[in-house]
């Protein structure tokens, strides 16, 4: 085997860009909470953007390498060290057999993504290597990592071309208040105009009820016209549900495919990289943008990723 888990950390799972095409059967998409950061880690490690990575939450794992490989860590700064020496994020790092990767403490953000050159050797289930914990599907035995788990590499390398150039500036920096841009809908007409104003002008606080399914916020209650229940319909990544109590819940990777609460707006895809790094106590404000603008931002991000993957190919 190639990695031995000495300590799994708080919540470490194998994730790729998600299980696409099975929502109609009730299968959650799962996938990394921050697709952009995971894609960047893969590009730096010489992989396809969509390769499976380890998603680490708050307290990262301790992993012993049993085989040499090249890794890259992106997303939040959880304080990575190799054999006790700090290693930089957003940088290709060659690791040797016997070395131990540890994370000391979260310094910025909440989630880090570790890419391994050549990818992890876990089975593809319904087109994806993502872990879907609720249904015990995919990833490493359908669950989060535990002490003693051993995971293989598919195609490890001792080094990559232009190792010294495989570095980009870290993207996430903490802020006193995070702005999440949203597209209003699908049920924005279920709220009073005062309710919409409350949503767009209020400051919300991330609560500890924050897992891979959703992120519950605390703050000014958003007024419905006639309650927060609807006949169940589909739920997008980033959908902001507002049940009758009036406080929002942002739906994330492991969300159920359908739900029966009004959704006031959806966080734009370009801002998932911020959303994924929020932690309890962080402050959030919402700003509405037209869908065309949201798509321009997303496509610009994708073009930049493509350009970068060509340089690092």
């Amino acid at each position: 085997m190639s990695i031995t888990v000495l300590n799994p950390g708080l919540l470490t799972t194998v994730q790729d860009q998600g299980r696409i095409g099975y929502q109609q059967f009730g299968v959650s998409v799962s996938g990394v909470m921050d697709p952009r950061s995971a894609a960047l880690a893969n590009i730096i490690a010489g992989n396809d953007q969509g390769e499976a990575v380890l998603e680490c939450t708050m307290m990262g794992p301790q992993l012993q390498f049993d085989q040499a490989n090249v890794i890259a860590i992106t997303g939040g700064d959880l304080g990575p060290t190799l054999d006790g020496k700090a290693i930089p994020g957003y940088t290709a790092v060659a690791v040797q057999a016997g070395q131990v990767l540890r994370f000391t403490a979260p310094k910025a953000g909440c989630r880090a993504f570790i890419a391994f050159a050549g990818g992890l050797d876990v089975p593809v289930v319904m087109g994806s290597r993502s872990t879907y914990m609720k249904a015990k599907i995919g990833g490493f035995q359908g669950r989060k990592l535990e002490k003693g788990d051993q995971i293989g590499f598919r195609a490890p390398v001792k080094s990559l071309s232009h190792m010294e150039d495989r570095h980009i500036p870290p993207e996430f920096s903490p802020r006193p208040v995070y702005v999440l841009r949203v597209v209003l809908g699908p049920q924005d007409d279920a709220f009073t105009s005062a309710g919409i104003d409350t949503f767009l002008s209020g400051t919300y606080t991330v609560t500890p009820e924050f897992d891979r399914m959703g992120c519950r916020l605390d703050g000014p209650a958003i007024a419905h016209k006639d309650g927060g229940d609807i006949i169940s319909d589909g739920i997008a990544f980033g959908a902001i549900q507002v049940p009758s109590a009036g406080t929002p819940i942002i739906m994330l990777g492991d969300r159920q495919t359908t739900g029966g609460y009004t959704k006031i707006a959806t966080v734009i895809t370009a801002d998932f990289r911020i959303l994924a790094q929020l932690k309890a106590g962080d402050k959030v404000q919402f700003v509405k943008v037209p869908v065309e603008h949201a798509q321009n931002l997303l496509l610009a991000q994708r073009r930049a990723l493509k350009a970068l993957s060509k340089i690092n190919a």
């Binding site: 929502q23 997008a236 359908t258 997303l298 994708r302």
Partner: peptide, 23 residues
Amino acid sequence: IVETVPTYRSLMVHYDPEVIRCA
């Protein structure tokens, strides 16, 4: 078109805006 999700009274259509934009 990426995937569709039928529910009681709606069809959610997931698409790739790189291929086709919203309007």
